[in-house]
Nucleic acid binder design. Sequence first.
DNA 1: AAATATTTTTAAGCTTGTCTAAAAATATTG
DNA 2: CAATATTTTTAGACAAGCTTAAAAATATTT
Lengths: 218, 218
Amino acid sequence: MLSQAEENYLKCIFTLSEKTEKLVNTNSIARALDTSAASVTDMLKRLSKREYIEYRPYKGVKLSEQGDVIARKLIRKHRLWEFFLCEKLGFSWDEVHDIAEQLEHIQSDDLVERLADFLDHPKFDPHGDPIPDKEGRFSVRKQIALVDLPVGKKGIIIGVREHSNDFLKYLNQHRLTIGVTIKVLEYFEYDQSLKIRLGSGTETVISQKVANNIFVKN
Amino acid sequence: MLSQAEENYLKCIFTLSEKTEKLVNTNSIARALDTSAASVTDMLKRLSKREYIEYRPYKGVKLSEQGDVIARKLIRKHRLWEFFLCEKLGFSWDEVHDIAEQLEHIQSDDLVERLADFLDHPKFDPHGDPIPDKEGRFSVRKQIALVDLPVGKKGIIIGVREHSNDFLKYLNQHRLTIGVTIKVLEYFEYDQSLKIRLGSGTETVISQKVANNIFVKN
DNA sequence: AAATATTTTTAAGCTTGTCTAAAAATATTG
DNA sequence: CAATATTTTTAGACAAGCTTAAAAATATTT
């Protein structure tokens, strides 16, 4: 059995290696988990001895097959709970992360599957991130950043790239939530900002930064 | 913030002092938490320093006002989650304890209240134990042990005295679950066993031990 | 009330997970 | 390619929570 700390390391390594494809280095883990590099090295040695990871000192680390399975389960649990919190308990998407971070450590395979049943096996969480199925497989779907949607075209918000609280709150305030239709009205060369119209008819201007962090489908 | 271990101690002291009314002693805590008396003393000193309990060495311990509030919250959370697991996810009452034991440590006041809302503020958990309200107050109701129900009388199962896995499984197997109507048909002086008829029409004989651990209302 | 038994506490030590400071390895740059 | 900078690891220390063994306090018996 893994401790919560150990589970957090595995999940962290999974998400970091998703982005880079290469070995994950000590410092990036330390940064992500807000801890010291020394603590990370310590933990990597322990996880390596128990064969959850493949660790090469000074080089970096990646998950073993065993570790990968565990990480995917954790992500499955996290995102299922997020879905539950939003859909059933009425939380907004910027409130659920910290609670799901705790709930993902609850140990019971039966619970996860019953929860998934209860929720009708959702494929995506409230942020539009895919929920791995029982076997750890992620759904994929065509999505483009809003910033790449041509002027005049319409799209529907289906996810976000950033998950920071500040960004999610910003989106909430501007009613830029999952499922909302957006039409790009104008592109301002000067600062790369976009004028958009929402399904509700509201028009706003959003910065390039924001547009880059929103995923839409046509 | 309290650790899970600290929370477990407070809950344990609460339930033990419920029964005895007097100071709770070290050994009984050790027995209940399946740990050593030395560990308990250790923890009592720490909890005392932080004023969650009133601890008199060699004499015993009781919860402070602060500790009492926390213990009641934990019990509230535990029983709400048990209710959720049975009512919404379809677990049977003998499967939920261990999972609820984990879920009770999730930290979020908002979550508890939303969960209670979602479940329609149940007053009793799947074992018939009262769920404290937001202010920590327990509902009380008239209940008698099945063993005290006179021959010829009917009662409805509303709770259990024992919570062991074995007992709950026994009850499940005999369809002796919450809400079931029971009529006492015969009392056998010899071994104090009871012949009963369930609402479904089934007739069985149950031991005195079992009858003593089932609560009914008339 | 003295002897014995039980309960509780203290002492010393272990693991987990963290920290800081220093040393070692690797990368970058002039 | 040697000097410098960065990254990583090692070393030593600490708190929490547990263990066992021994000492101290309290309870029970005779």
